[in-house]
């Protein structure tokens, strides 16, 4: 793992920022004809990809580094969105403060769920988050005086810095991607830290990690809390970008599609997250043009089964493993022939 240095992370992040910053210009002023016409539509799609990326990174960390699944992640996403929407529409709270409140609240809730579940071996967290996800969904739907019930809350204000209001496609695009990249860089650094190596150890063999003195339960709880806070951040962004929240984007199906994104992006792969988010978002956009009903759901199911059967580490890490193996083979073959490495 020595090749993965902080320098590389920095370079990759810089490259990402540059490319992301350039993207709207390509989309807006591209001269490639009808393919890349000026397009607020694309900016909208990529804005959602950024939001889903933040969610997917959290799940990737959780599944890959803590070896745990959350089947109720949409609940944290929803708590973030609703906290922002409720505080900004029902009180005079500033959107940024509301976002912070949502993140902190979600973190505390995740801590309360994670602590008892993650002290046990096995997959109690998957079960607990599943139950928790439903409870949150039911509360969002039923607690009408506060959450607006099924018809939700309208007129959520946009985020703003001074006079700069993030109310339009291009601005939302930059805002969400800036935060998504920030989350990616933070995550990459965590993965590369001592804590991150411990996470990997936990995933590899808990017994071995414990023998090395890694406090497993604490790390698992930390990564779970972190991923739930990412979800809350994404939820808050959703609320301020769409300016409307209602319960259905945060239901069990949403949790499942987040897990699908995580699986495609690859567990234990921070940079796979945008790939997973983009694949699912673009796939959905494409599939709705086909005449078969529910084809998207059928394809999700197939993706989950096929990826998990053949590449249990997820799509990206599967490819990574294959590439590493190939290189090693080539290297050993070269060594055998006496060629310099």
């Amino acid at each position: 793992m020595r090749w993965f240095t902080a320098q590389r992370t920095f370079l990759a992040a810089l490259l990402g920022v540059l490319l992301a910053a350039a993207l709207p210009f390509v989309l807006l002023h591209g001269s490639a004809g009808p393919l890349l016409e000026q397009n607020n539509y694309w900016l909208g799609v990529f804005t959602f990809i950024a939001i889903y990326t933040i969610l997917a990174v959290g799940l990737n960390l959780l599944m890959g580094y803590a070896g745990q699944a959350s089947l109720g992640h949409a609940a944290f996403y929803g708590i973030g969105a609703y906290t922002s929407a409720i505080l900004t529409t029902r009180t005079a709270c500033s959107p940024w403060l509301a976002m912070l409140c949502g993140i902190v609240l979600t973190g505390v809730v995740a801590l309360l769920i994670g602590m008892p579940c993650l002290r046990l071996r096995g997959h109690y967290l998957a079960m607990a988050t599943l139950g928790f996800g439903w409870i949150v969904f039911i509360v969002m739907r039923q607690w009408e005086p506060i959450t607006g019930g099924s018809s939700g809350i309208e007129n959520v204000p946009s985020l703003a810095i001074g006079g700069l209001v993030f109310d339009h496609d291009v601005k939302c695009f930059y805002l969400t991607w800036a935060l998504a990249l920030l989350v990616l860089v933070i995550s990459a650094n965590i993965v590369n830290s001592r804590v991150g190596r411990a996470f990997r150890a936990v995933h590899g063999s808990e017994t071995a990690a414990a023998a090395l003195g890694v406090p497993i339960a604490r790390f698992k709880v930390q990564v779970f809390v972190l991923s739930s806070m990412y979800a809350a951040l994404a939820g808050s962004l959703y609320a301020h970008v769409v300016k409307y929240v209602n319960p259905s984007p945060f239901d069990f199906h949403a949790s499942v599609s987040l897990v699908v994104m995580g699986c495609i992006g690859g567990m234990a792969s921070v940079w796979g997250a945008p790939l997973g988010a983009a694949t699912i978002t673009l796939l959905k956009e494409r599939l709705q043009l086909l005449p078969w009903r529910d084809i998207d759901v059928i394809i999700y199911g197939l993706i989950l089964i096929v990826v998990m059967v053949f590449l249990p580490g997820g799509l990206v890490s599967g490819v990574q493993v294959a590439v590493t193996r190939l290189r090693r083979q080539r290297r050993t073959a070269a060594a055998r022939e006496g060629a310099p490495l």
Partner: peptide
């Protein structure tokens, strides 16, 4: 995945 697939 199987659950989602069957429902679909």
């Amino acid at each position: 995945g199987a659950s989602v697939l069957l429902q679909g």
